[in-house]
Write a protein that binds this DNA or RNA. Structure first.
Lengths: 183, 183
DNA sequence: TGTACATCAGTGAACGCGCGTTCACTGATGTAC
DNA sequence: TGTACATCAGTGAACGCGCGTTCACTGATGTAC
């Protein structure tokens, strides 16, 4: 059942897009090829018509996920400046989202031990995010250092808030990090 | 080849201790029961004489790892105050360590999707860490909020520094987070 | 204190299962003339 | 423009492998008398 070139391209994008959501919600190791294909409405056998191996799909899915965070952060920065971006990122709804926004918080420790391709993509996305956050700072000299500290706090707070079994403590982590960053 | 009660207890501790190191270096999903048993000098078959399942060993290993970080942070706080703890945590040697010190940075995203037992242990360890860090703050009112922000920044910066494929950017993340926290 | 028996730590083989990957097959698409 | 053939997206079965878990077996330890 061969498909047209246009349809093949659309199918590939659908697999990448569905996988971007899946890996952020279940992790890279926790998501199988069959699940990623099924999420795009396909069976697992056709996978290798689009990708050379799992690592290739994961790195492309990571790029798609990265583009989404960047877009969301940018939109928030434009609308309400740094405070808006911080409040959106550290919101309870982001913490509890079935599909988390941020791949760094969702996949952080897994990416640290991950494949080269994925790390290269993550590095690129991180660079873009830091540039955007630095632009939102008045003090040009310290802008980049502040951007790095802010992003570290955001990712760390979200990671810890998701680990914690105590709902009150989890909320407190988000609130404290938010208050600290908005001061 | 039955062993004495004392020796059995020592064996169990050895498995937990070896596993605490293994899961921090390879992740929970990336470490098999056979590897954890082998690290303690045993074959995998005897596993169930000591634990009911993998989850039980992982949560105990997490406790052991947590106790170690708490001890290291405490030692640093007593010797050189908050600055010493921050510099040790965000050091290049901690980033590159074969066995990372901090289970939150090493297993963060995995724990977020992890089992209840592990999350409960992580919550407990986190609470201890926050109490210790808050005690190192002069301003009593804001001490806890600052402790949470500091730990978030530490964990986030280490996570990001390990993800990044660019060595220069990785170093910059550690330095910037350090400078920010020491101001 | 000595003897007889029950217990159980540890081994190594085996289990069922899900995984990433491969493959024969299908039929619509793309291409050469 | 029409025809004949090559291409290839997608299916579903099959592969080898490593995993967590189970089990029969061993022999030293623990216990009851």
């Amino acid at each position: 059942v061969r498909k047209s070139k246009a349809e093949t391209a659309r199918t590939r994008e659908a697999i990448v897009s569905a996988s971007a959501d899946l890996i952020r919600s279940r992790g890279i190791g926790g998501t199988s090829l069959a699940e990623m294909m099924a999420a795009a409405g396909l069976t697992h056998g056709g996978f290798y018509r689009h990708f050379t191996d799992k690592e290739e799909l994961v790195s492309e899915a990571l790029r798609a996920a990265g583009d989404k965070v960047v877009a969301i952060i940018r939109r928030n920065l434009h609308k309400g400046g740094l405070p808006a971006a911080i409040e959106t990122y550290l919101s309870v709804s982001h913490r509890d989202a079935q599909t988390p926004i941020c791949p760094f918080a969702a996949l952080g420790s897994e990416l640290g031990r991950g494949a080269r391709k994925s790390k290269a993509v993550a590095t690129d996305v991180l660079g873009t995010l830091l540039t955007d956050l630095a632009r939102a700072r008045p003090n040009r000299k310290k802008a980049r250092q502040q951007a790095i500290a802010t992003l570290s706090t955001l990712v760390g707070a979200m990671t810890l808030a998701r680990i914690v079994a105590d709902a009150g403590l989890s909320d407190e982590i988000l609130e404290s990090a938010k208050d600290h960053l908005l001061e």
